[in-house]
Design a binder for these strands. Structure first.
Length: 152
DNA sequence: GCCAACGTTGGC
DNA sequence: GCCAACGTTGGC
């Protein structure tokens, strides 16, 4: 089982939205590096839900992968902002996962806090200029984050 | 609103 | 294949 972190702007899709819906297809990722991480995800993997482009940015909860290698349907939808005219049904470019809500943390673990706790070498998220929306989290760091959340 | 740090596009 | 121009992300 691996840990991941996935970003979403709460104005677009928030942890509250996921809690209400129970599960969701994580669609709209259009970055190859991020997609390659999505392809590596397995059922049962856990992912931190990160709110970006908001005040304050930070980790707000946890979700679980319940379906892997899902073809992102928005790539074929001409009305979607994520439409990709170069993608074909025979060989879709964009795969993703379906995730389910696990929990919303009682406190936001802000980016400021995460930067104080971890170096950019051990945690890609806190690296300056990082724009990846899907990031692997090593187990040691993931467990520290979970411990911290349980104490508070 | 600014801008650093990317990623992508397309001419050559 | 190079690289300038442009677009996007996302913290501040």
């Amino acid at each position: 089982m691996k840990y991941w972190l996935m970003k979403s702007e709460p104005q677009v899709y928030s942890i509250t939205d996921l809690q209400q819906e129970g599960q969701t297809i994580w669609d709209g990722v259009r970055n190859y590096q991020a997609r390659n991480f999505l392809r590596q995800m397995k059922v049962g993997d856990l992912a931190f839900f990160y709110h970006s482009n908001t005040k304050p940015p930070g980790i707000v909860g946890l979700m679980r992968v319940i379906e892997s290698n899902v073809v992102d349907p928005t790539q074929f939808d001409q009305d979607s902002p994520y439409y990709d005219p170069k993608s074909t049904q025979e060989s879709p470019r964009w795969q993703t996962v379906t995730v389910e809500f696990v929990e919303q943390f009682s406190k936001i673990l802000t980016l400021t806090t995460l930067k104080q706790m971890f170096s950019s070498d051990e945690f890609l998220l806190v690296k300056r200029g990082n724009r990846l929306s899907v990031i692997p989290v090593n187990t040691t760091i993931a467990e520290k984050i979970i411990d911290l959340v349980k104490i508070s």
